[in-house]
Write a protein that binds this DNA or RNA. Structure first.
Length: 721
DNA sequence: GCGATCAGGT
DNA sequence: CACACCTGATCGC
């Protein structure tokens, strides 16, 4: 649960995901997603009163979040105070301090968070630096690298602070099977059950919260069976979800709820009351989506575990795993990081201890500026592959400071280190706000070296796993190599490869684009169709791959695997067993390795399908990646220019505001992506977008005249973006 | 009667 | 295992 207080050190007059106490004085509110624990105070009378008095205070959120929020009458009073911001569309807003009349411009960008429909992260850019509030998120490894708007050109933006979802920031939660693996596991379980007869139904034991829609839509799409839910009016304007859910109880997949649904199930009755069909009693299994995690060394990951006669637990996570968190933060490398959540059984100190080494100032302090050997072994930016060619790449790319190829940033990196490290030392950041402009970091800090000892950290007992982590990052940087190689070692990182697609879904202007937040294509792969061709037929007992973590499954003597991969472990659920005879004491286990197989074939098919049906949970892949890898087209924002354009826009907007005598708290920049006026920069960005890593440093070296100009500006104390 | 908080449950 | 949420008891206004 989030313990974020609502305010960021850099911009304390903004409140995010908290609306009580001090937050009642905020100049603007932001809601990252529609979960209750992020809406504290949002409907309190005190805030309502504040709104009535302060007509210029608004709530900013994604269109989907607004839609979901306003479905509840309790939040209706917000209706005309909500400003929706399109995802991945930098938008400038003006914040007016009503007391002082002081006005401030800030650019906010919503980035898909993969947590639930409408969930976003907020990237703020303003006079006190660039900060990222992640809200709750689940992003697979490498996804930060594919978010165009986290970059300026090919380089990650300089981010002062990240306010991070640390729900699973504990080595205990080292890995969680990817969304695709989980989905495939559940899909195969559901498929194998409901195909037994029309009376075989599945109850998905989902909590009352947004976030399972991606499961519903994918199951429905794959199986052609809609999911019964209690309520669907919140999706009225989201046809992509609406189509896959129903209030008609005569379906084989249910996610309906009842306060005492356990009792209902015991009585062989669905929470909606259904107990039979045409006089024939239903055969019900329940599947409870829950987070399952695995240690660093765990090779086998069971997606589905049988927990009883007719009950199963299936892996499902709304939050990033430990390794995903580290990958995300390690890519962004902010100066500071602040946990939004203290994981149960952990402490703030422990979390910070884990995260600090991934921050810039940490590497400034602890790493020599030039570490050729370390580089050779552990560069995060090198283009490694599983094969021997990888080594060549390693040498080719390694020695070039690949992240410093953008001229204007190159200049920046030559600034003397000033505040970066001091700010980091848990100092009071507001003290330094005024000097933000001087806060830069030396060149080396952007080269993502991974120091052997350092990065092993608490995991340093497992060298191989560490390698895999590096691998994951590397692979993520080069989609082409991913497609070819996949993961060299094991299933643990297969999630990486599942997100690689190309193309981009066209946005539809009118409807909230829920799929922007959740996209994924459960591909019916060659493998899985092969699976379909082999209806449940055999039990492969006695091969439990259940990790020790799962005492519940271990307690059952034998295991049955549902393989989505091949016929050697074919899918079977014995009706007899599920009916309580349980002769085989089956635990149905679907390993991520198996699911993994399906995922790869999903990829193979990728090219053609990507654009539209890369569906439901991973829009961030689809979208951001298409930004990043496809040839730059007219609509692709050029992040280079967002920064450089900012000042101009600010001035423009200020002028406009003055002219229009609005003095409004809010000015939106047409809700459009800031477009680049500079075709040269655009080309620059384009070429660099082909690969995360430039082939040669020369290609992007700053021109001396430009450098000179920038140096002069710096000397004059001007802000340089 | 309402909201906030906590405990306890799923 | 946790998450996000619900219910019910209690307290204060």
């Amino acid at each position: 649960m989030s313990s974020f207080g609502g305010r960021m050190r850099e911009y304390p007059w903004l409140s995010i995901d908290r609306f009580d106490r001090e937050n009642l004085r905020a100049r603007a509110y932001f809601l990252s997603h529609c979960h209750k624990d992020h809406m504290k105070g949002l409907r309190a009378p005190s805030l309502k009163r504040r709104l009535e008095c302060s007509l210029k205070v608004h709530l900013y959120c994604s269109p989907v979040t607004k839609e979901l929020l306003l479905t509840s009458p309790k939040y209706k009073f917000w209706e005309n105070r909500i400003v929706t911001l399109e995802v991945e569309t930098p938008t400038q807003i003006s914040l007016l301090d009503e007391a002082s009349g002081e006005k401030e411009e800030i650019v906010v960008t919503l980035l898909p968070a993969g947590h639930c429909p409408g969930s976003v992260m907020f990237l703020f850019q303003g006079q006190n630096g660039t900060v990222l509030y992640t809200g709750d998120f689940r992003l697979a490894k490498g996804e930060a690298a594919r978010m165009e708007l986290l970059h300026s050109g090919t380089r990650v933006k300089d981010i002062q602070s990240v306010y991070l979802d640390t729900t699973f920031c504990d080595p205990r939660f080292y890995q969680i099977p990817s969304r695709e693996e989980c989905l495939n596991g559940i899909l195969e379980l559901v498929r194998s059950w409901i195909t037994l007869s029309r009376h075989h139904v599945v109850w998905l034991n989902c909590k009352a919260a947004y976030g399972y829609e991606y499961l519903f839509t994918n199951l429905s799409e794959e199986l052609g069976v809609k999911v019964h839910v209690n309520k669907l009016d919140m999706f009225n304007n989201m046809p992509e979800i609406l189509y896959h859910v129903t209030t008609d109880r005569h379906t084989q997949i249910h996610a309906c709820r009842h306060p005492r649904d356990d009792d209902y199930l015991r009585g062989n009755r669905l929470p909606c009351g259904m107990t039979s069909r045409n006089g024939t009693p239903l055969c019900i299994i329940s599947v409870k989506p829950s987070t399952m995690w695995f240690g660093e060394r765990t090779r086998k990951t069971n997606i589905v575990v049988r927990t009883g006669e007719s009950s199963y637990r299936a892996c499902f996570s709304f939050h990033s795993s430990y390794s995903e968190i580290k990958d995300f933060l390690g890519y962004i490398r902010p100066v500071n990081v602040y946990p939004n959540v203290i994981p149960v059984g952990s402490t703030a100190d422990e979390v910070v201890k884990i995260l600090k080494p991934l921050c810039k100032s940490y590497s400034i302090k602890s790493e020599p500026k030039y570490k050729p050997l370390g580089t050779l072994k552990r560069s995060r930016t090198m283009d490694l592959t599983d094969t021997d060619e990888g080594s060549d790449d390693l040498f080719d790319t390694e020695l070039t400071p690949v992240r410093h190829k953008i001229p204007k940033h190159q200049v920046e990196t030559t600034l003397p280190e000033t505040k970066a490290s001091s700010e980091n030392s848990e100092g009071n950041h507001s003290e330094n706000m005024g000097s933000y402009k001087a806060t830069t970091m030396p060149m080396c800090s952007q080269v993502h070296f991974i120091d052997c000892e350092e990065s092993n950290g608490e995991d340093d007992d497992d060298e191989e796993s560490e390698k895999n982590t590096v691998w994951a990052q590397v692979v993520a940087h080069n989609p082409d190599s991913t497609l070819i190689l996949g993961n060299p070692n094991e299933e643990a990182h297969s999630d990486l490869t599942c997100t690689l697609t190309s193309g981009q879904q066209e946005s539809n202007a009118d409807m909230p684009q829920w799929d922007v937040f959740f996209k994924r294509d459960i591909k019916t792969t060659d493998d899985s169709s092969e699976n379909e061709d082999h209806p449940p037929s055999s039990i492969d007992a006695g091969r439990s791959q259940s990790p020790n973590l799962f005492s519940d499954s271990d307690s059952l003597s034998d295991s049955t695997h549902i393989s989505s991969q091949n016929s050697s472990q074919s899918t079977h659920i014995s009706e007899q067993g599920s009916q309580g005879v349980d002769s085989q004491a089956d635990t149905v286990l679907i390993t991520s390795q198996q699911a993994h197989g399906a995922d790869f074939s999903f990829l193979n098919k990728g090219g053609s399908r990507v654009t539209v049906s890369v569906s439901h949970f991973m829009a961030m892949d689809n979208q951001t990646e298409s930004h990043r890898w496809k040839p730059l087209d007219q609509n692709t924002p050029c992040p280079d220019n967002i920064d450089s354009d900012l000042k101009g826009k600010n001035q423009e907007m200020n002028a406009e505001a003055g002219a229009a005598e609005t003095q409004n708290t809010l000015i939106e920049v047409n809700n459009e992506k800031l477009k680049t006026p500079n075709s040269e920069l655009e080309r620059d960005s384009e070429s660099s977008s082909d690969f995360e890593i430039p082939s040669t440093p020369e290609a992007e070296l700053p021109r001396p005249d430009k450098l000179h100009c920038l140096y002069k500006k710096l000397a004059a104390g001007e802000m340089i973006y």
